[in-house]
Design a protein around this nucleic acid. Structure first.
Lengths: 326, 326
DNA sequence: CTGTTAGCGCGTTCAA
DNA sequence: TTGAACGCGCTAACAG
């Protein structure tokens, strides 16, 4: 900036003002500064700028995974709103591990972000303490089944699980099976399964017979797990999957093995991904609004930069999509 | 840090050293500092640290889209390697727009990143100038069909398109159709189509009849576009899709309309996504290695932080997966 | 093993 | 409309 100032024959302060479009500068000096910037190839240093203003314009985003399209969609929602506000995202991936999350929270906070967006409401004590102590907005996305630190945006997975049970029960299904991915890690899938189990108990049915593989969810896992479930429990008349990827795998399995869906076996997913709705028989599932979560999160940040005394909970809800598989 | 230093009865410098684990400190002072850090809830300020050391530990990543799983997979590859090196990703999304990319490049450079990872080899002149002038490593991912600024990691989409043509020609297909998404934006899909067209010309066949919709690729778009193509050109015996999402949509369409694949109509995709391989008849496609691109990119950064005189081109290749649809 | 000095590149504040 | 002085919070370099 010093160089630019010299070349333009002004002070650094004037250069700074011209570049940020604040205060006022005569058209003549403005032009000279702009020429000098171009000639020197000057690149603004936001590290120094942020240090001086104590405003980084950064937002930390901590996600469990990039492979799962659910999170990349949320990230998409965040990013599109972010860009308009002149903020930038710093991204971290936890791989569903709370210790990794804690390290990422610490690391992110050291960049003095304007806000931090994390996934879910379960964190290590230390992570919770840091988030609580940070004088910034903290948004916990995807889930609203527990009290948030500051703002929670998402849906009740417990309610979604229970609603799934109610719908299938009303359709006449009685012998429930459940196919899940790694439930130790995917706490929201676990909540949904608990909601389902609770409903079944309430109507006097036994809990769903279950296969849960210790792997991240995928189409192939859904296929394989359904095969195992049916081998062990041929009596089930409906299978609830932990999500649409798994369910789509199950649907492919049924196609390959000529299992009549939903006549012989009902299938039910979660998320409302495009893939489920592209099948000749669209998947029965629950649709959640990921884009909206991301956008709403940013909206909350715009409303107030300071954290109020009371936490905020925003329920983005869910919609049961009857489909044609259950 | 001042506070911490006072509470521990040492200088700021000692605190700094203890926190960064550099130099040496007696166990006693180390303990006192650590206690003070815990009691004050001190959070390191990397803005200041980076300014002082002139090393940000940031890597800028600029992607066309988050919705497309191809890019989130690349991002996954980058992130997993990144984390191990103590670097952090700052992410920007261009929505396939070069002007947006230029703005993002400028913005990213102002954070003084250690490296910048962008997608593809086509940029605005100004973006290219900035990338060229920045004294950091610049990685252009996904494509190697043009000379890179510094490092290109990816595959020749032209070769992939041409190989697709060769394979289908050898299988006996002669009347080619093509179904694409927005080719003005997706320059790599365009390269593949050009490679295909070139091959067809070389063997004396007419170019593929084509439907290209001005929308981002999706399963539904694939369905719709195939319907339109077949309505207009019922004579085609094979359809090449711009990618696996589109092709999967086409495959669903054929299932719904009882079109025998590959007997009556061949279908061919690109990417080797899981969805294509989950069908009862796995999709014939070309598999690319996205994770590997991300990981290799980071590896290159580790090898040398300085940009050599000669650009580097790393071909991650592709693999034709015969599948069962063409 | 520990402290002192100086400066990273900006923006705020005040004065002209 | 412009400039000078100062400080943001940290660390490199040197000294002890």
């Amino acid at each position: 900036m010093n160089q630019v100032a010299k070349m333009a024959g002004v002070s650094e302060m004037t250069v700074s003002r011209v570049l940020r479009n604040v205060g006022s500068a005569s058209p003549a000096t403005r032009a000279r500064v702009e020429t000098a910037v171009r000639q020197t190839g000057y690149v603004h240093n936001r590290l120094a700028g942020s240090l001086a203003t104590a405003r980084s314009g950064l937002v930390g985003v901590i996600l469990p995974s990039m492979a799962n399209s659910v999170f990349s969609e949320v990230m998409g929602g965040i990013n599109s709103t972010l860009a308009r506000s002149g903020l930038q995202a710093v991204v971290g991936v936890t791989d569903y591990d709370q210790t990794t999350e804690e390290a990422l929270v610490r690391s992110m906070l050291s960049w003095k972000p304007e806000a931090l967006i994390v996934t879910g409401l379960e964190h290590t004590n230390e992570a919770r303490r840091m988030l609580d102590a940070a004088a910034i907005r903290v948004i916990e996305m995807m889930d609203i089944d527990h009290p948030p630190i500051d703002i929670a945006i998402g849906l009740s997975h417990r309610a979604a699980g229970s609603e799934t049970g109610r719908y299938l029960f009303e359709r006449g299904y009685r012998r429930f099976g459940y196919v899940g991915d790694d439930l130790r890690k995917d706490t929201r899938a676990r909540s949904r399964r608990e909601g389902l189990t609770e409903f079944l108990r309430a109507v006097g049915l036994p809990p769903a017979v279950e296969i849960a593989e210790a792997e991240p969810s995928s189409l192939h896992l859904g296929k394989r797990a359904l095969a195992r479930l049916l081998a062990r429990h041929p009596e089930v008349d409906v299978v609830v999957f932990s999500n649409d990827d798994m369910a789509a795998g199950g649907l492919f399995y049924c196609m390959e093995h000529s299992i009549d869906v939903p006549g012989q076996l009902g299938l039910f997913g979660f998320n409302g991904l495009e893939i489920g709705q592209a099948f000749p028989k669209p998947l029965s599932t629950i649709r959640t609004n990921r884009q909206k979560m991301g956008a709403l999160a940013m909206e909350q940040l715009m409303i107030s930069a300071a954290r109020p005394n009371e936490p905020t909970v925003i329920d983005t809800g869910f919609e049961l999509v009857p489909g044609a598989t259950a």
